[in-house]
């Protein structure tokens, strides 16, 4: 069910000379500073959005490197102490025959974070120059990034559960390593980076390129 019945040209709020609150969707005359309904600051187009995206993106990437170098888990058994990095832990699981779990760990803590860094960078670059990828696909990519970002936290929770549960005095103990802190920070920073992206920019570029009526 659509809001409008007619399938005319879709007009953006900016072309109508109005701005909308991105939180509660209330519409205001252009130039309104704060939403009178929910109090959010209203910005027709967030010019600083990209700066914030890149800033968070960079810190996130910087945290992701130590997250992979330092050990994530420190397992102490009767005879030895073993320190596993994220990838090392997954390889270990693979050797134990738990391929399914190893894949979950690899996807959640390697594939998703790396894919997210690339996707955000791609989106941020694509709104500044003509892109060959359609707006619909980029919007979809943005939504996937926003949705999936939180799931990287899974590895932190696994470490938390294991290290609280496996505390068997002399027999065995698992403790979190330094990488867990960096990994959690990396996930949080990339989530903030994705949130800072103003997805309306994807559609602006489109309107400009097709020579659609533009008031600028």
């Amino acid at each position: 069910m659509d809001v409008t019945g007619q399938n005319a040209e879709i007009v953006s709020a900016r072309d109508l000379g109005v701005v909308a609150c991105t939180r509660c969707t209330q519409v205001w005359p252009a130039g309104t500073q704060t939403c009178g309904r929910c109090g959010r600051a209203i910005i027709a187009r967030d010019d600083k959005s990209l700066q914030r995206v890149w800033a968070w993106w960079l810190v996130g990437l910087m945290c992701y490197i130590p997250a992979n170098i330092y050990p994530m888990l420190r397992t102490r058994t009767l005879f030895r102490v073993q320190e596993d990095t994220i990838i090392g832990g997954a390889v270990e699981l693979l050797h134990h025959g738990a391929a399914g779990v190893a894949i979950i760990v690899l996807v959640a803590s390697v594939v998703i974070p790396l894919g997210k860094f690339m996707a955000i960078a791609f989106l941020a670059i694509s709104v500044t120059r003509p892109s060959s990828v359609s707006n619909h696909h980029r919007q979809m990519l943005y939504e996937v990034v926003e949705y999936i970002g939180r799931w990287s936290m899974i590895d932190i929770f696994v470490v938390a559960i294991m290290s609280s549960l496996v505390q068997l005095n002399t027999l065995a103990a698992i403790n979190p390593g330094r990488a867990s802190l960096f990994f959690a920070l990396s996930v949080i920073f990339t989530m903030l980076s994705a949130q800072a992206f103003d997805s309306r920019m994807i559609w602006d570029v489109h309107a400009k390129r097709e020579g659609a009526p533009d008031n600028e």
């Binding site: 809001v3 953006s12 000379g17 969707t25 519409v27 309306r200």
Partner: peptide, 22 residues
Amino acid sequence: TQPIPLDTLIVCPHCDAAYKLR
């Protein structure tokens, strides 16, 4: 489109498309 009654509009927060509210 100057005298738009703002209450009758709804704008998509993701792509800024404006619609008449029904």
